[in-house]
């Protein structure tokens, strides 16, 4: 890996951590419901640099973010880790399997969906153990995941467009 890539990953991860921290300040009406703003960064990283840098950004974000928020190795950390990894891996797989078919909107939706599925599975296996409690929050999480996934996807789309425009401007001028 070249040092320029390392800087890029560090920069993207710091953006993701900032969004992660910001979002922790937002109160949530339903357990496990989060805006998933840092997923915008993951989507952008995937689009520009591919799956491995995206995984790295996600890992750095989750580990450093949880250290900053004081949730490291707590229940929230494992939920965050499972969700983050499942989201990133699923987005990467979909992008590899169907190159070009999905835009940032679709990729972000995939990420949100698998993030929720992984998180609920881990919550069920490790912490709750009652399928009823999972079933009660499942529809809310799926609905919220669709809304936040779509919003984040649209945000990522604008960002990808702006970054590409900036790149082209640089190359042309």
């Amino acid at each position: 890996m070249q040092s320029a890539d390392k800087y890029r990953i560090a920069l993207l991860a710091s953006y993701a951590i900032a969004l992660h921290g910001l979002e922790a300040l937002v109160p949530s009406p339903i357990p496990w419901l989060r805006l998933g703003l840092s997923n915008i960064i993951t989507v952008i990283t995937l689009f520009f640099y591919g799956i491995r840098p995206a995984l790295m950004v996600t890992m750095v974000r989750i580990v450093l973010g949880s250290l900053l928020l004081g949730t490291f190795l707590g229940p929230a950390f494992f939920l965050s880790l499972s969700g983050g990894l499942a989201g990133t891996v699923s987005m990467g797989i979909v992008m590899t399997l169907f190159p070009g078919s999905f835009g940032p909107l679709g990729i972000s939706l995939i990420g949100a969906l698998f993030h929720n599925i992984a998180q609920l599975s881990v919550a069920y296996l490790l912490f709750v153990g009652k399928i009823e409690a999972i079933l009660v929050v499942l529809p809310f999480l799926l609905a919220a995941g669709t809304v936040t996934g779509a919003c984040n996807g649209i945000a990522a789309r604008y960002l990808v467009r702006e970054i590409e425009a900036a790149h082209q401007k640089k190359e042309n001028g």
Partner: peptide
């Protein structure tokens, strides 16, 4: 260039 629009697959998925 990368695909950066809302594609048909996106709409179907949504």
């Amino acid at each position: 260039m990368r695909h950066n629009n809302i594609t048909l697959a996106d709409k179907v998925l949504l």
